[in-house]
Design a protein around this nucleic acid. Structure first.
Length: 941
RNA sequence: GGGCGAUUAGCUCAGUUGGUUAGAGCGCUCCCCUCACACGGGAGAGGUCCAAGGUUCAAGUCCUUGAUCGCCCACCA
């Protein structure tokens, strides 16, 4: 096997190759039969109009880490992908295309328009799927779904019909949010409020048959054309005498009544309000209470209509300007002021939303919200982070009915037929769908009106809000309403991961729909997901959401080209602490890329050196040539899966410690990473793995055992090789959830069992009890401290890095002395020492030194390096003084605390003992430093 | 008008249930192109944890108030 490995990690070719292989081989297909726990998660379906942005990548990285981790733990794991038809967004895109040919959708007609949208979808829709595959999302693509496909269409019909029969879906004429651009109603959630400084105009309405007049204020003067009353507060003494009288509506010269309603705030403005029931939600309510006429003065596309008299045909804001001008002349405009207020705009197209009366379909939410609230309160759905739980509950408490109809052509058409003769509403006979022109439609078309027997029935022209079908996603995609094996196995899904920006749009509605519609007898069997994790959003430096339209979006695929997918994934995951948003920084990406490169090179080191040993033999004994029997130093002999399984191998003699230690660390890190992932603390998982791989595995373990790998002691070399390959293999599996491509590539360069296809199907490292070795951890820590102390002296004294020097070491206790002596070779090598003279004794018996020796002391040891020429005495004295001051301060505070009777009386014994032990160590350290300082100051140069 | 979050090293951020000397990455300083990696190695400097009170033996961590910033929700014309 050729082991030519490039010096720097070059991700592009590797990633593309594996992404394709994973997809082609259907590697992530989930089993819906068999034993063992199932783990399922539904992908928040991206819009077919969308292309991947950094927010997706963050979400997908987190989901993918969890999914890969569960799969590697042996769960039957399903990550179900799919797409959302995205009603408004998609229709918008296609309409724009038509506009280029000077066409409107009305020119084509509904059927033809729908055909065009399907055509667009086939050609340009769903780009995101390919991007997800490229970025390594381990979805089960054999189970991909689309919200307008027959199976899901049927689920939508079933849900609608059930809710309709139950009386939860109703139709009515109400004031709704209307987008004049999209020309459809939108739900409250789809209106985004922007704080703006607008103007507020005061307008004088003369009282009929009197000299008096009433001044009202408005931010939307154009709506006055539809005024049908002026309201004052019933207890307002200023206006009491006018209630019931008429005022003349300026410009229209219509008489309207002055009414009293407690809705009016006496403190605001003049305390008198114009009432426009057809164009303001509050006024609409007032109008209902007082049986006022509703006069619509605008068209669906935001122009004034015939009821607006001479303003008919004007665009709404043009009309506003004209009206203000016209009021000035007769002196009816009392004034105009700047006025900060919130303007509602359409979430989709940013047009200013117009409240408008129209007939729409609504879903009653209160009866659905109650059970949803209950499951959250009962903990049947665990919400992470916790504060989002509060937000969710508050929203459910204040929920209002959901306007589910849209005046669009792209979507699930409402399965209700209207009788031409008697206007009776007739629902579809059943939820069956038929395929017409390749696409699904309601099949249960009613033929006769059950009320009047009329045979002319026309289907409602509205479609459902896209979120209606989305709210069924976790079960509609598993086959609901049928009791399929998938539904039985994977519902309720284990987890939902979504951004908190769609908590109300999607997550909450899924909970309500899942609880209401699915079949389990207990709520815990009907929840759509058992845990809900709301991830952070990626923001720009200014704190705004990343957005392509604002030009602040970053194309992840381009970044992938630049840095590699694994690096991007690692960067995002390492910043993904629950509850805080992420601001990208170039530095973090570079750091992640360096990490990927580090992993690559650690593996490269092993392979390259094995090559050398194979071909040249053990270098420390050049005459030995190839080992007898020839085949011992082959990858298979040293790294075969059955060989790795038995690691760690006992290493004869001195070199054992590092091996025991690295496996102990591996056990600890596996446990840490697992616990972190389980709690969605991705950053913590990343950090512990990073620290392990770079700090422990590369900086210490590899450096420590390097000579062993080429030792002429064959037993030692073999054991060392086997351990290091086993440790690398475990490290790769540990890293795989976050860096799938790199680890897959390297994993395949290790021998794997016959037929093994992917590291993704291998096991995540368990924290093995027999790997845990506290004494190895402690011993290694001391030796590391000694090495660091020696390096520190060398660096501070600016010794030539190539020059080896002798050192003296004093350690407390004979055990430590033995430990040091047993690991002498490694210490000398790593600290660049030519010799280390070890003495041991009781604490306090610091090694004798003079001013020609530089010393580093801890409570456990003193290390001194003799330096022939004069040392930089002032610098060393300054350093000592600083340390001494720090220690003194620390010791004093500890002594004070220990002297405090209330502390010793109340604090747990453990804490007191620990404090006492630490204090002793510090005091010992301090004594040593003072002694050293005394020597330096005393000695003449 | 309500609600939520943030404020910790020059920068970007971690700090689980209060408990030894508050951490990381990047940047910075010094030394090294040592045969896996300069996307590297070694050593180091750098923090009154926004402010003021309070609870506690003990507060970056809990409570109150305030400041600054950000987000979400909301029908005040």
């Amino acid at each position: 096997m050729p082991r030519e490995i490039p010096k720097a990690y070059e991700p592009q070719e590797i990633e593309e190759r594996w992404a394709k292989a994973w997809y082609d081989e259907q590697l992530f297909r989930a089993e819906n039969s068999g034993n063992g726990p199932a783990f399922s998660i539904a992908l928040p379906p991206p819009n077919i109009t969308g292309s991947i942005h950094i927010g997706h990548l963050l979400e997908h990285t987190q989901i993918d880490m969890l999914v890969r981790w569960h799969r590697m733990r042996g769960d039957r794991t399903l990550w179900l992908p799919g797409m959302d038809h995205a009603g408004i967004a998609t229709q918008y895109v296609v309409e724009r295309q038509l506009a280029e040919q000077k066409l409107r959708r009305q020119d084509l007609g509904r059927d033809e328009f729908e055909r065009r949208v399907w055509k667009w979808k086939a050609e340009s829709g769903g780009a995101i799927k390919g991007q997800m595959i490229r970025l390594g999302a381990s979805c089960d693509w054999t189970r991909e779904h689309f919200t307008l496909e027959p199976q899901l269409y049927r689920a939508v019909l079933e849900a609608f019909l059930r809710l309709y029969r139950e009386g939860l879906i109703y139709r009515g004429r109400y004031i709704v949010n209307w987008c004049p651009r999209c020309q459809t109603a939108i739900s409250d959630l789809e209106v985004v409020h922007h704080e703006r400084t607008g103007e507020i105009w005061s307008i004088r309405y003369p009282v009929a048959g009197s000299n008096e007049s009433i001044v009202v204020a408005t931010t939307r003067p154009e709506t006055m054309l539809g005024d049908t009353a002026v309201a004052v507060h019933p207890d307002d003494e200023r206006y009491k005498h006018l209630v019931g009288k008429k005022v003349i509506l300026p410009l229209m010269n219509r008489e309207i009544t002055i009414i009293a309603d407690s809705y009016v705030d006496r403190e605001f403005g003049t305390g008198a309000v114009k009432i426009t029931p057809a164009h303001d939600p509050n006024d609409f309510e007032v109008g209902k209470r007082h049986h006022l006429p509703e006069i619509e003065v605008m068209t669906a596309d935001g122009h004034m209509n015939d009821a607006a008299g001479k303003y008919a045909g004007l665009e709404r804001f043009a009309a506003r300007a004209r009206i203000v001008a016209d009021l000035k002349e007769p002196g009816l405009l009392e004034g105009v002021k700047e006025h900060p207020h919130a303007v509602g705009v359409c979430d989709r197209c940013k047009s200013i939303v117009e409240p408008r009366i129209s007939t729409q379909w609504f879903l009653k939410m209160k009866p659905l919200a109650e059970p949803a609230k209950q499951v959250v309160l009962d903990g049947l759905i665990e919400v992470v982070p916790d504060n989002q739980r509060t937000i969710l509950l508050q929203w459910l408490d204040n929920i209002r009915d959901w306007c589910i109809s849209r005046q669009l052509w792209w979507g699930h058409r409402i399965p209700i037929w209207h009788c031409d003769a008697c206007s009776e509403m007739v629902p579809a006979l059943n939820s069956n769908v038929e395929i017409v022109d390749g696409h699904a439609r309601a099949a249960g078309v009613p033929k006769l009106c059950p009320k009047c027997g009329g045979a002319k029935l026309t289907q409602d022209t509205d479609v459902l809000d896209t979120w209606f079908s989305s709210s069924l996603w976790p079960f509609s995609t598993l086959g609901w309403p049928d009791e399929t094996p998938d539904l039985r196995t994977f519902y309720p899904t284990s987890l939902l991961v979504s951004g908190y920006d769609i908590l109300f749009f999607w997550d909450a509605r899924m909970i309500m729909m899942g609880l209401h519609l699915t079949g389990g007898s207990a709520p815990k069997d009907r929840v759509p997901f058992r845990r809900l994790y709301l991830h952070s959003l990626v923001r720009t430096a200014e704190g705004a959401k990343m957005s392509k339209t604002k030009g602040t979006g970053i194309d992840p695929l381009q970044m992938t080209q630049q840095y590699g997918t694994d690096a991007l994934r690692y960067m995002l995951a390492s910043m993904a602490a629950p509850g805080t948003d992420i601001i990208l920084s170039e530095d973090r990406i570079l750091g992640a890329r360096a990490f990927a490169n580090k992993i690559w090179n650690a593996a490269r080191f092993l392979f390259v050196n094995l090559d050398k040993v194979e071909s040249v033999g053990l270098s420390s004994d050049p005459t030995a040539g190839l080992p007898a029997g020839g085949a011992i130093f082959t990858l298979d002999e040293l790294a075969a899966p059955e060989i790795r399984a038995k690691a760690p191998y006992p290493v004869p003699g001195e070199g054992a410690l590092a091996h025991r230690w690295i496996f102990s660390r591996l056990a600890a890190v596996s446990a840490q990473a697992g616990a972190a992932l389980d709690g969605f603390r991705f950053h913590e998982a990343c950090q512990s793995i990073y620290q392990f791989f770079w700090g422990d595995f590369c900086d210490w373990y590899i450096e420590w055992v390097k000579p062993q790998l080429t030792s002429s002691d064959r037993a030692l070399a073999i054991a060392a090789w086997r351990n290091i390959f086993a440790a690398l293999d475990a490290a790769l599996r540990l890293l795989h959830p976050v860096m799938p491509f790199l680890t897959e590539e390297l994993w395949h360069r290790l021998p794997q069992p016959e037929g093994a296809r992917s590291i993704a199907l291998d096991k995540f490292p368990e924290s093995r009890a027999h790997w845990v070795d506290a004494s190895a951890d402690d011993s290694m820590a001391i030796l590391q401290e000694i090495v660091v102390a020696a390096r520190n002296i060398r660096a501070e004294m600016k010794l030539d890095p190539r020059k080896k020097v002798a050192a003296d070491l004093f350690v407390t206790g004979p055990m430590r002395r033995t430990l040091v002596e047993e690991n002498m070779d490694a210490i000398l090598r790593l600290a660049s020492l030519s010799d280390l003279r070890v003495t041991s004794g009781h604490p306090g018996a610091a090694i004798a030194s003079d001013s020609g020796v530089v010393v580093r002391s801890t409570s456990a040891f003193d290390l001194g390096i003799a330096y022939g020429e004069a040392i930089d005495k002032p610098a060393e004295i300054a350093r000592l003084k600083k340390k001494i001051a720090e220690l003194e301060k620390d010791i004093e505070s500890k002594q004070n605390r220990l002297a405090d009777r209330s502390f010793t009386g109340k604090a747990p014994e453990k804490v007191i003992d620990a404090l006492r032990a630490t204090l002793e160590e510090r005091q010992l350290e301090l004594r040593k430093l003072r002694e050293r300082l005394r020597q330096l100051e005393k000695d003449p140069d």
